[in-house]
Design a protein around this nucleic acid. Structure first.
Length: 103
DNA sequence: CTCGTGACTCCCG
DNA sequence: TCGGGAGCCACGA
């Protein structure tokens, strides 16, 4: 059910603190393959419901939500907003203020 | 083994 | 600032 990359991605996402976010590319980088950003999204698309994962704390490099499905998109924005993550008028997050990275 | 599939990024114009 | 095109690659079928 899960390769090593897959496990590390899950592991990293699980550590994202409340009110903070990380990008797909950085998750991929810390998981061992900086060029596998797309796979991170693909993994979440498959496993977001499981594991109690804070999947909503993962956004794209532009500081925007990448979820295609409208319902999930709004859910993600709500969850983040509830945690204190601010969105500008264009639904963009200030990464400089909220970005988190593993130690 | 090969192939299709992207919740991505980077690079240009 | 924005959109299209190309590169990338883990994973499942």
């Amino acid at each position: 059910m899960a390769g090593p990359f897959h496990m590390r991605v899950i592991d990293i996402i699980r550590q994202i603190p409340e009110g903070r976010v990380i990008t797909y590319g950085l998750v991929a980088l810390h998981a061992g393959n900086g060029r596998a950003a797309r796979q991170v999204g693909r993994i979440l698309a498959t496993c977001s419901g499981k594991e109690n994962l804070p999947w909503h704390r993962v956004v794209n490099r532009a500081g925007r939500i990448s979820v295609p499905e409208a319902e999930s998109y709004l859910a993600q924005r709500n969850l983040l907003h509830r945690e204190g993550v601010a969105f500008d008028p264009d639904d963009k997050i200030d990464l400089a203020a909220h970005l988190w990275q593993p130690e």
